[in-house]
């Protein structure tokens, strides 16, 4: 018989198994100093408890192997001063070692916590994150109103610079978590807090909501895109511009569709009449990689499916289904894709 199928089957099984441990959404694949500090602490504690586990299991196995008996009516040992004396000694020293080890863990934990929270800067980039059911509003605040960037679900930051994230929530509690960047921070209604992130390697780093927030908690992703300073500046400049008026007639028709249908009730496109803040700002939708809080790729087909029947993709989310004529839908998508 042909020996290859089982081998290749095994190979693909191994590959599939290994694939389970890859991916950037991973606390053990740090991309910045905060996540690296935590990863270091994780491995230190891991090896401590691994050794403790081996010692305890060996102890129980050896204890179980000594003096086994199956005698049914074995009379209990009534007094065993020699055993008690030795056990007292052993238990006391084990407790002492345990306490010392825990002190070491406490010490390293506090030091690491200070390190993670201590990486600040006097001239940071500030990003305001507001959690909504079930998407993220991202703002780059500026003293001048027209210099404020508002976008959704995609956070662009320059590589190697400390960024301060200000948190707030518009409805329920969410939690901002990009595992390869830093630990999580809850977004609490009525509270605002700040924490720091930094990414040292260009790339796209996914994140998710980590606090149960209702029906679509599962589909509430975001991504942090770290890029070099120039690319980031270009992106910033582009984001500050209002939406360009569509040049080709189909897109112009699409703009009209947007303005005369339900879209305008919820979304903002700066430079047009659309100014509702209920849903994500779409001024530069075309420049984003994903839609629907990182649920679908930003392609024509996905957009069409999302616009017509969002409740199939994210049941319970706050976007209404839209019954559009095929022509109108095509034009609308063309228009949305021009919003670079």
């Amino acid at each position: 018989m042909n020996p290859i199928p089982p081998i290749s089957g095994l190979g693909s099984a191994v590959a599939l198994f290994l694939a389970q441990f890859t991916g950037e959404h991973n606390s053990l694949h740090p991309a910045g100093p905060q996540a690296s500090d935590i990863e270091w602490l994780y491995w230190v504690i891991f090896w401590i408890i691994f050794v403790a586990f081996i010692l305890m299991i060996t102890g129980f196995a050896r204890a179980a192997a000594r003096n086994r008996t199956q005698a049914a009516e074995m009379l209990p040992i009534m007094s065993d001063p020699e055993g008690d004396r030795r056990a007292t000694w052993a238990v006391s020293s084990a407790v002492a070692i345990t306490v010392l080890t825990l002190f070491a863990v406490l010490f390293m934990s506090v030091i690491t916590g200070k390190k993670v929270e201590g990486r600040t800067s006097t001239n940071p980039i500030t990003i305001q994150i507001t959690g909504h059911q079930w998407w993220w509003e991202v703002q780059y605040p500026s003293p001048q109103a027209d210099q404020t960037i508002t976008t959704a679900n995609e956070i662009h930051i320059p590589v190697g610079r400390p960024v301060v994230i200000l948190t707030s929530s518009a409805d329920v509690i969410h939690s901002f978590w990009a595992p390869s960047v830093n630990g999580k921070r809850d977004l609490l209604p009525g509270y605002s807090s700040a924490f720091w992130i930094q990414i040292d390697k260009p790339g796209t780093y996914p994140g998710r909501c980590a606090e149960f927030c209702g029906l679509q908690h599962a589909h509430m992703g975001f991504s942090i895109i770290a890029e070099d300073d120039n690319t980031f500046k270009q992106w910033e400049q582009q984001q500050l511009k209002p939406a360009a008026d569509p040049a080709d007639p189909e897109a112009a028709h699409g703009k009209q569709v947007f303005a005369t249908h339900a879209c305008i009730m919820c979304h903002t496109i700066r430079g047009t009449d659309a100014g509702s803040r209920m849903g994500p700002d779409l001024t530069h939708l075309g420049s984003r990689q994903m839609i629907a809080a990182e649920t679908l790729p930003n392609t024509r087909g996905a957009l069409a499916g999302w616009i017509i029947d969002p409740q199939r993709i994210k049941p319970g989310n706050h976007m209404a289904p839209n019954l559009l004529e095929p022509d109108d839908l095509q034009a609308l998508i063309t228009y949305l894709q021009t919003l670079q």
């Binding site: 029906l215 029947d309 409740q311 199939r312 049941p315 319970g316 289904p321 019954l323």
Partner: peptide, 9 residues
Amino acid sequence: ERELRPSPP
């Protein structure tokens, strides 16, 4: 009752 996906009329 929570009708999450109302059938389009």
